[in-house]
């Protein structure tokens, strides 16, 4: 589903001493099937933005469009439930929301709420368990016996079981060990490609934005600060630093190599092995000319 924000503003507790403008005149479009990273430091409006994507919040001004659904101020969305069926949100620490007595019941909870027929739910459960890489043998066990990383996978399986076409991920790897982080991100990327999802990733990790996203939106104090392809965004070191964002480490290092040795190695998702070879070859090349 195509998503667009058209001059969207959101104000918490308007006309009170606590009034806070969380989003200001925000406009962007996300074409169906793209993988977008939303980046910005704490308080920049990221969470407010994603709460508009499934209608938890309605804009104070402007218009949000998600496929055929329109969210505007003063207009109640009649079909909010069906919007939420299409937009799956994996909130931060989603495992805190597990509550059922078995893993199976927990996964089935979402689709049952949307009146998905039992036969269809039964069919989806093994699919989503496979997608999050959990064995079917544990379905009848309580989710709380699992490790933190596995509990998170169960929670994600519950979102996938609703068969969403838009997946919103709010810091999905926070608190996981390095291997768990990589596995979860690779899993989302695979799902994104296989199911042709529109994926919106809220992250602090510039590394993940660079590796997975086709497009980046940077927020600062509720406004759009920058937008574009990650490789282009990360060319603007000073502009990023002005809003306290860093370059991904690899980009930063390649810049320093260029400063130090005068050799340019563009980033194109090369593996560590390819990068090492490239550095060695180019460094040799430089010394020959001296």
């Amino acid at each position: 589903m195509d998503i667009s924000f058209n001059q969207v503003s959101y104000t918490y507790q308007p006309n009170t001493p606590f009034e806070h403008h969380a989003l200001k005149d925000l406009s962007f479009t996300i074409p169906s099937g793209s993988f977008v990273a939303v980046v910005g430091h704490t308080g920049s409006g990221k969470s407010t933005l994603i709460q508009h994507l499934n209608g938890l919040l309605r804009p104070t001004a402007g218009k949000v469009q998600i496929g055929d659904y329109h969210l505007m101020a003063n207009k109640k969305v009649t079909s909010i439930k069906s919007l939420r069926k299409h937009v799956g949100v994996v909130f931060q620490y989603p495992e805190h929301q597990l509550f059922e007595e078995t893993i199976k019941k927990d996964i089935a909870f979402g689709p049952r709420n949307f009146n998905t027929p039992q036969a269809e739910i039964e069919k989806r459960i093994p699919e989503v368990m496979a997608a999050v890489n959990l064995p079917l043998a544990i379905l009848e066990r309580p989710p709380f016996d699992l490790s933190g990383g596995q509990m998170r996978r169960v929670a994600i399986a519950g979102v996938l079981a609703m068969d969403p076409s838009v997946l919103v991920l709010d810091e999905p790897t926070a608190g996981l060990d390095p291997k768990g982080q990589q596995q979860i991100m690779d899993m989302f990327y695979q799902l994104h490609q296989e199911k042709k999802l529109t994926t919106i990733l809220v992250t602090h990790s510039m590394e993940d934005a660079l590796r997975y996203a086709d497009h980046m939106i940077i927020l600062d104090h509720g406004s759009k600060y920058m937008e574009g392809r990650p490789v282009d965004i990360f060319k603007e070191k000073e502009k990023l630093q002005a809003v306290q964002l860093d370059l991904p480490e690899i980009i930063h290092f390649l810049r320093r190599i260029e400063e130090r040795f005068g050799i340019s190695i563009p980033y194109r998702k090369q593996t560590m092995a390819e990068l090492a070879t490239e550095i060695k070859t180019k460094l040799k090349g430089v010394s020959k000319h001296e």
Binding site: D177, P178, K179, G180, Q182, E249, I250, F253
Partner: peptide, 8 residues
């Protein structure tokens, strides 16, 4: 064992 080393 599920860990890694930094980029550098």
């Amino acid at each position: 064992i599920g860990l890694d080393v930094p980029f550098v």
